[in-house]
Computed example of a mutant assay.
Amino acid sequence: MSSRTSRNTLTERGMQIVERRIPALAAKAGHEAYRTTLQQTGAVTVKTSNGQVVKRALDGSETVIKSLPVGKRVKTGTVLRRVK
C-alpha cells in the first residue's frame, strides 16, 4: 500500500514540469473545441486578420468581408471604458 502512495506523490520538480505543459494543453484543447464545433455545426467564424474582417470556413478558406481602417494605437495595459 505504501508503494502505491509513493508512486502517486509528485515532487516539487515533477509538479513544475507538469505545470509548464498547461499553456500548451489549454491551447490544444481550444483548437480542438473550435474544430469540433465547426464540424458539428458546419458554421464559419468571423475574425480580424491583417487589418481585414474575414470569414473562415472549416477547410481553412478565408473570404474578406471588409477592410478595416487603421486603428488608434493603445499602450499595453490601458483600460478602456464604455461611454454611456
Rank of each mutant, 00 (worst) to 15 (best):
M1C: 15
M1Y: 11
S2H: 15
S3Q: 10
S3A: 14
R4V: 12
R4D: 12
R4E: 06
S6I: 12
R7G: 01
R7C: 00
R7V: 11
N8P: 04
T9P: 01
L10Y: 09
L10K: 08
L10A: 10
L10P: 00
T11I: 01
R13S: 07
R13A: 11
G14T: 03
V18W: 00
R21K: 15
R21I: 07
P23S: 01
P23M: 07
P23K: 01
A24Q: 14
L25I: 06
A26C: 03
A27P: 00
K28P: 00
K28C: 00
K28G: 01
K28M: 02
G30K: 14
E32V: 03
A33H: 11
A33M: 11
A33S: 13
Y34S: 00
R35S: 04
R35C: 03
T36Y: 11
T36Q: 07
T37Q: 07
Q39C: 05
Q40L: 14
A43N: 12
A43G: 11
V44Y: 13
T45A: 05
K47F: 09
T48N: 09
T48S: 15
S49G: 05
V54S: 02
V54A: 04
R56T: 08
L58T: 01
S61G: 04
S61Q: 15
E62I: 03
E62M: 10
E62A: 14
T63D: 15
V64L: 11
V64H: 07
I65S: 05
S67P: 00
S67A: 03
S67E: 05
L68A: 01
P69K: 00
P69W: 05
V70S: 10
G71I: 00
K72Y: 10
R73A: 13
V74F: 14
V74I: 15
K75Q: 10
G77K: 10
G77P: 08
V79I: 09
V79C: 05
L80W: 13
L80Q: 04
V83D: 07
K84W: 04
